[in-house]
């Protein structure tokens, strides 16, 4: 029987948005793993990480509470999950904050009453897509649909920040999370387990406002992947993917480097291992073509 979840897609996953390659490949991957995602109808933005200053605390918690309340109404018995680490974090944080602070809870519901919505409180913590894979499917389950083992492919698993901190995946450490490495190995690739920048920050939204400071961070993330002989960097986060992939030519110009390394989502890597075509795995959505992965997909 299919695993079913209430799904919060988030802004960057929209058709034609910066993370649409994640959306497409995630659907492909879920098909192969018999996971059914039921998108919440009429979801809104979570406020992401920079929403704090324009939004303040209560408005930010209120907009996420709206998503949770709608999800519980539409898919009452299903876990709420998100592919985007920021969406997940904001949702889960809202559940905790409103649970711990009755005044905040009451105020959030006063604001929600303006649109006739009521948030009833935490039922089950929101989950990240990778938690579904690790906990509900398991690494054996991830290995099962493999038809094209990714032999010889060297992958630097770049976990980044918000899928890892402050909540993270159960059983993992904040400093050296291993789940991406285990995923790589489950589909026959070589995991570069010693990749020391796996949990480093890419600058997040500050890539837009503080480009130099953020690009200095990304430079180190890429350099370390090259040091380990990586063919590609693999991440669960749309922000990380964009920041590490899109500015390589800027960084090259600034630092005299010659970076040209593909940055893909784990859902793209798994999809290819499961026999999907390059376009089903959204490999045409990359700015730097992951040639080795495309070759395997075309085989």
């Amino acid at each position: 029987m299919a695993h079913e979840y209430s799904f919060y897609p988030g802004c960057s996953s929209q058709k034609g948005a910066s993370g649409s390659n994640q959306m497409v490949s995630n659907e492909t991957m879920c098909d192969k793993l018999d996971i059914k995602l039921n998108a919440i109808d009429d979801w809104n933005c979570c406020g992401a990480s920079v929403g704090y200053s324009g939004g303040g605390e209560l408005a930010r918690l209120t907009i996420s509470a709206r998503n949770i309340a709608i999800s519980e109404k539409q898919h009452p018995d299903q876990d709420l999950i998100a592919t985007c680490p920021a969406c997940w974090l904001a949702t889960r944080e809202t559940q905790e904050r409103l649970h711990d602070d009755p005044q905040m809870m009451s105020d959030a519901n006063k604001a929600l009453a303006e649109i006739g919505v009521e948030y009833q409180g935490i039922k089950k913590p929101a989950r990240h897509m990778t938690e579904v894979l690790v906990e509900d499917i398991g690494f054996d389950g991830i290995a099962k649909p493999v038809t094209k083992p990714l032999e010889g492919l060297k992958i630097a698993g770049y976990v980044g920040c918000q899928s890892n901190r402050p909540y993270g995946i159960a059983g993992e450490s904040f400093e050296n999370p291993m789940y991406l490495d285990k995923m790589s190995e489950a589909v026959g690739a070589e995991a570069l387990t010693g990749y020391e920048k796996k949990a480093s920050c890419c600058g997040g939204a500050l890539m837009f406002s503080e480009q130099e400071k953020s690009q200095a961070l990304v430079k180190e993330i890429i350099e370390a992947a090259y040091d380990h002989g990586a063919d590609m960097i693999m991440t669960p986060c749309a922000m990380c993917q964009m920041n590490v992939e899109a500015y390589q030519s800027d960084i090259n110009e600034k630092y005299g480097t010659k970076f040209d390394i593909p940055v893909v989502f784990y859902s793209q890597v798994l999809s290819v291992a499961y026999g999907s075509t390059a376009s089903e795995a959204a490999l045409d959505g990359q700015l730097i073509a992951p040639k080795k992965l495309i070759d395997i997909a075309n085989k």
Binding site: G51, I63, A205
Partner: peptide
């Protein structure tokens, strides 16, 4: 930037990248 971001999302409830 963070104010632009917030204003953008409040306009439609979702971010217009």
């Amino acid at each position: 930037f963070s104010q632009l971001f917030w204003d953008n999302l409040v306009q439609k409830g979702r971010v217009n990248e």
